[in-house]
Computed example of a mutant assay.
Amino acid sequence: MWLLRENARTDGSPTEENEVEQSERRDFRTASPGSDRAAGRWIDPGGRALVIVGVMLVLVLTAVLPWIGGASGWQVIAGQADPVLEVGLLPRLFSINATVAGVLLGALTLATRRWPVAWITAMACSVVTVEGVIAIWSRQTVPPGQPGGPSFGLVLAVVAMAVLAVQWLRIVWSRP
C-alpha cells in the first residue's frame, strides 16, 4: 500500500506505473486459479521413470525368450507358433495387450506426462497383468504329456507387467 501512495501524484491521480502494477495484479489473480488446475493435470514420474523404462525394456526383451514350449514371445504375438503347441487365445491376447499397454501407452505417457494418460496406462497395465496370470494358468492346465506349458519368458513378461502396473499406480496416486 505504501508503494501506491509513493507513486501517486500530489493531485491525487494515479501515475502510469501505478496503473501498470494494478493491471498486473489483476492479471495474476485471474490467472492463478486456472494455473492451479492446469498444474494438477501433469505428472512428474521422477526417478520412477527410469524404473519404468527399464521394465519396458525387459518387457520388449521377453519377446525373444520362450513363452510357450519352444515358441518365443514374438512368435506368439505374430501367430507363428507351432500348431502342435495350440497356443490359444489367452497367451496371444496377453502378448498383444502387453505390447500396447506396457510399451506403447507407457512411452506415450512418459512423453506427454499427462495425468489422464497415466491413469489410463495404470489401469491398462493392471488389467493386462490379470490377463497374464490367467494366460499362465491356462497353459498350466494343458493335459499331461502334451507339450506347451508356460515357459520363463511368459512368467517374466507377467512379472514385468505387474511391476509396471505398480509403478504407474504409485505415480497416479501421488497426484496432489
Rank of each mutant, 00 (worst) to 15 (best):
M1I: 08
L3T: 06
L4C: 04
A8L: 09
R9G: 04
R9P: 00
T10M: 08
P14Q: 04
N18W: 04
V20N: 13
Q22R: 11
G34M: 10
R37I: 03
A38K: 06
A39H: 03
P45D: 13
P45F: 13
G47S: 13
V51P: 00
I52P: 02
V53N: 09
V53G: 04
V53S: 11
V53M: 13
M56C: 01
L57N: 00
L59K: 00
V64F: 02
W74S: 06
V76F: 03
Q80F: 01
P83W: 04
L90M: 14
L90T: 05
F94P: 04
S95W: 03
I96G: 13
I96R: 11
T109F: 15
L110S: 14
A111R: 11
R113G: 05
R113Q: 14
W115C: 12
P116H: 12
V117A: 15
A118F: 05
A118D: 07
M123F: 12
M123R: 14
A124N: 02
V130N: 06
E131A: 08
G132M: 07
I134F: 09
S138Q: 11
R139Y: 07
R139H: 10
T141N: 15
P144V: 05
G145A: 11
S151E: 15
S151H: 08
V158W: 03
A160R: 01
A160K: 01
M161A: 05
M161G: 01
A162D: 05
V163Q: 01
L169K: 00
R170N: 05
W173Q: 14
S174K: 09
R175C: 10
P176S: 12
